[in-house]
Simulated assay, not measured.
Amino acid sequence: MAETKTHERVAVTDAAALLVRDLTKQHGPLMFHQSGGCCDGSSPMCYPIGMFVTGPSDVQLGVIDVGLADPVEVYMSESQFEYWKYTHLTIDVVPGRGAGFSVEGPTGMRFLIRSRMLDEAELMHFGLGSSI
Rank of each mutant, 00 (worst) to 15 (best):
E122N: 07
Y75G: 01
L123N: 04
S130R: 13
S35F: 01
L30M: 08
D40E: 14
V12L: 04
V74H: 00
A2W: 11
L68F: 11
Y86P: 05
D70C: 09
H33L: 09
S131M: 11
G41L: 07
R9Q: 00
L68M: 09
D22M: 12
G67W: 13
G67A: 07
F111M: 01
T90Y: 08
C39F: 15
G67S: 07
F111T: 01
T4W: 07
V63H: 11
T107N: 05
V93M: 01
V93N: 02
L61S: 06
L128E: 05
G127W: 14
G37C: 00
A121T: 13
G105H: 15
R9W: 02
H7F: 15
G41H: 09
H33T: 08
L19T: 02
F32S: 00
R9I: 00
C39K: 11
D70A: 15
H88M: 09
S77Q: 09
G41Q: 04
T6M: 09
Y47G: 04
P56W: 13
I91K: 00
Q80N: 08
V103E: 02
V72A: 02
I113N: 14
A69M: 12
D70S: 13
G62E: 02
E78H: 02
L23K: 04
M109I: 03
C38W: 15
P44K: 03
R114C: 10
H27R: 06
S43M: 12
P56Y: 14
F32L: 03
M1H: 13
Y47T: 00
M51G: 08
S35I: 01
M31F: 11
L123M: 12
R110P: 00
L68W: 10
V66T: 01
L30E: 04
S79Y: 15
A17I: 01
M124Q: 12
D70Y: 11
G55N: 12
S130A: 13
L118N: 03
L19A: 11
I113D: 13
M1Y: 10
R97N: 11
P71L: 09
T107V: 06
V10S: 02
M1C: 09
V72T: 04
E120W: 05
P29W: 10
K5H: 07
L118T: 05
F81H: 10
D40N: 15
H88T: 04
T6G: 01
D40Q: 13
I132P: 15
D92A: 15
R110F: 01
F52L: 11
I132Y: 15
E8A: 11
F101T: 07
M124F: 12
D40C: 14
E3F: 13
I64K: 01
G62F: 04
V72P: 02
S131Y: 11
E3L: 14
T6S: 09
I49F: 11
G127L: 07
A15R: 10
Y47I: 02
F126H: 03
D119E: 13
F32H: 00
T6R: 12
V103T: 06
I113K: 11
L18I: 10
Q60G: 00
G108S: 06
P29K: 08
I64L: 07
D119W: 09
H88I: 04
R97V: 15
I64T: 02
D92P: 02
D58M: 04
G37N: 00
P95W: 04
V59A: 05
M76D: 00
P71M: 07
A121E: 13
L118I: 06
A11Y: 10
